[in-house]
């Protein structure tokens, strides 16, 4: 029982990391159909931002808190730049964005290698986040995992509020539901796209800050997560946050439970099989926007 509970907590924390990464993708992939492979490098940018800040701010706790908004801005700016330079020219060819952004991702990885060196670097976690909370009965919750979980939920809450309550959110939802209709209704869809891309990429930066707490920072750190995060969006269904939230946690728990009962590699294959089986039942993902379009 203890093992199961501990393992589910591990699963939930894996899910939280996936969720943080997939949130940004839900926005960019969901709204614009853009498959941004460079999303992983925006995560990397967020992580390196933390690293750089920690070099100038000695207190680990302060630097982490400062890093969150700064990483959001850095990654967001990179995303907006990418959108402006390349992606807006490719809206009619969404599949091609995947290959173009893969090229961008290669260049960004090399840039990181040239600036920070090929070996992984490490940041110091604040003392507050290094311990465990023991719930008795052998159940322990790692503080850094709890922090990531909290951060992920906070991001979901913030994003939901923005999408539901602000004029910007209303415009974003309108573009997601029907781009043409939104455009003829007087919404500047191009500007909405750029803002969405900024927020989506910024969230990747925040995810990068969170990842510094659980692993090393390296040029290829983004690629390790990107495929799993895309699977979350595919299974969750595009255009709605709740699908991604549920899927991230379900996949995280599934992965960790399977890992425990078999091995890491078998678990990966089993999760993929489960996803293909799930898509037989709901090919558009968990939640979909009901539209009359055929595509």
């Amino acid at each position: 029982m203890t093992v199961i509970l501990n393992q589910s907590f591990t699963g939930i924390s894996i899910g939280a990391v996936l969720l943080l990464i997939a949130l940004g993708l839900t926005l960019t992939f969901g709204q614009m159909g853009v498959i941004n492979m460079a999303h992983g490098e925006f995560i990397m940018a967020g992580a390196y931002t933390t690293y750089v800040l920690q070099k100038s701010i000695s207190s680990a706790g302060v630097s982490l808190l400062v890093a969150l908004p700064v990483a959001f801005l850095v990654a967001g700016a990179m995303g907006a730049l990418l959108e402006w330079l390349l992606i807006r020219r490719l809206y009619t060819r969404p599949l091609d964005t995947l290959l173009v952004t893969w090229g961008v991702s290669l260049m960004l990885q090399q840039l990181a290698r040239d600036v920070f060196g090929a070996p992984n670097v490490q940041t110091h976690a604040p003392d507050l986040l290094t311990g465990n909370i023991s719930l008795g009965g052998g159940i322990t919750l790692a503080n850094n995992r709890l922090f990531i979980l909290g951060l992920a939920l906070l991001c979901v809450l913030g994003l939901t509020l923005i999408l539901r309550l602000t004029p910007l959110g209303r415009r974003v939802r309108a573009v997601v539901q029907n781009r043409d209709l939104a455009e003829v209704s007087g919404i500047a869809t191009e500007r909405v796209d750029r803002t969405t891309f900024f927020i989506g990429s910024g969230l990747a930066g925040v995810a990068g800050v969170a990842l510094t707490l659980v692993g090393p920072i390296g040029p290829t750190m983004g690629t390790n997560y990107i495929v799993d995060a895309f699977l979350v969006v595919v299974v969750g269904g595009i255009g709605q946050l709740k699908g991604s939230v549920i899927t991230a946690f379900v996949l995280g728990v599934l992965q960790s439970v399977l890992e425990y009962s078999t091995t890491v590699s078998v678990a990966k294959v089993a999760v993929l099989v489960a996803i293909v089986a799930f898509l037989q039942w709901r090919p558009q993902g968990l939640y979909t926007l009901r539209t009359r379009s055929l595509a």
Partner: peptide, 20 residues
């Protein structure tokens, strides 16, 4: 894109399985 991502995940899964 869904198909592209699934086929990519298959590549990831096979190479991870072989390593394991």
């Amino acid at each position: 894109a869904y198909f592209a991502i699934l086929s990519q995940a298959l590549a990831a899964a096979l190479s991870i399985w072989l390593i394991g």
